[in-house]
Design a protein around this nucleic acid. Structure first.
Lengths: 209, 209
DNA sequence: TCCTTTATATACCGATCGATACATTATTGA
DNA sequence: TCAATAATGTATCGATCGGTATATAAAGGA
């Protein structure tokens, strides 16, 4: 390639930008905060990532890759829908309270209220949240298909409930609630499972599996 | 009183400021947004309410008076702890989805992430959230004392769980979830009650009440 | 009537916001 | 060797941020 080579690691700079957005949210993360954390100056940021909005979208994509994707895998790899939802709750809590990263979920906390000119980014984050909800819904639907969830269960409703709890856990994590208390809260949500699913999981007929 | 009389209704102006903070959050509500909504200019705002931070604290106090206090009363006036928590959920949903006011809870959504120089306001809001949690805890403790909640129930844990759900409902309301779906989610949370309380409510001995 | 007091309106403060112009430096291809 | 290309550092842009100085207007008290 022609031209002067880049003197910084683009991926590492993006990861640091992600941390700033995670800590401060979208609007409160200033270009000065970002460039300082990334170790570069403004023109380098703009040539490598585009505008602040572009950088943020890429930071969210990186968050999805680093933080969300393993949770998605855990949900899908769990043997039952219940175990999948439990994994979603517990693994999110691990992320929300990890010592080396900011508390709570970037996608949930970065922009709830805000300036009206940032409504597109708010919608972008909302869509991301809905995709997490869709993940849980599909896992419960699969549970019905595979027989570990009663057929009369309502996957939409259950996914909405557990997604709502996860959003609440983000707020609580940001407020400094302990890991232990968050886990206790997740268990409380799971305690509703049988009644939400319309009874305990039907026992598969012997030899069916 | 001496001096030129005020030409605006202080209470009405405060209510409009509250709406702006409710809609945009603390940081994104600019003085221009505020003065325009309040129908006054900056010096009038400063002489009547002090700095932006002072105005915000007073707006939150008004929110507590107008929106929160009736919910507090409903929780405390409910005949049982279960009915009290149910009232807290349902009445919050009414507030979060009311057509004439912004969606979600001002206290929860106004400042989660943000600039580090606003950490005092974040703590102020966090304290407000914790007081809501304490309200639920006390109502459950009273339920134990009055016999409508089993003695082995954990009021701290139950209050934390239902408060977390309410925080999640704020996020969902902001995301545009329907009133019906929010109610369905609240019912899902209430479905965990018996297992959280350690069994259904003990039946009072006949003649005890 | 006139002075004191308080509110109003205009205009502006320094600081910071996101975003760039410009000149310089470093590299590749011809 | 040198033009073309791309990244860097500095310095700055206009807009907006929260917050005020200043002058004027409107009331009460002496």
């Amino acid at each position: 390639m022609r031209g002067r080579p880049r003197t910084f690691d683009r991926e590492k700079a993006l990861r640091r930008a992600m941390m700033v957005f995670w800590e401060r949210g979208y609007e409160a993360a200033s270009l000065e905060d970002l460039t300082e954390a990334m170790g570069i100056n403004r023109p380098s940021l703009y040539s490598a990532f585009g505008r602040k909005e572009d950088l943020f979208r890429e930071a969210v994509a990186l968050y999805d890759t680093i933080e969300t994707a393993p949770i998605v895998n855990a949900v899908e790899d769990s043997p039952t829908a219940y175990a999948g939802i439990e994994a979603a709750l517990k693994r999110n809590i691990e992320v929300f309270t990890r010592a080396k990263t900011p508390r709570g979920c970037l996608v949930t906390l970065a922009l709830l209220s805000g300036r009206k000119e940032n409504s597109e980014i708010r919608d972008f984050l909302c869509e991301n949240r809905r995709s997490g909800q869709a993940l849980l819904r599909r896992r419960i639907e699969r549970g019905i298909a595979e027989g570990d969830v009663p057929a009369k269960a309502d996957p939409d409703r259950m996914a909405l409930f557990y997604t709502t709890v996860i959003h609440g856990l983000s707020v609580q994590a940001k407020d400094g609630i302990t890991h232990e208390d968050l886990c206790s809260t997740a268990d409380a949500a799971l305690a509703a499972w049988d009644r939400l699913a319309g009874g305990p999981a039907p026992k598969p007929a012997s030899g069916q599996l």
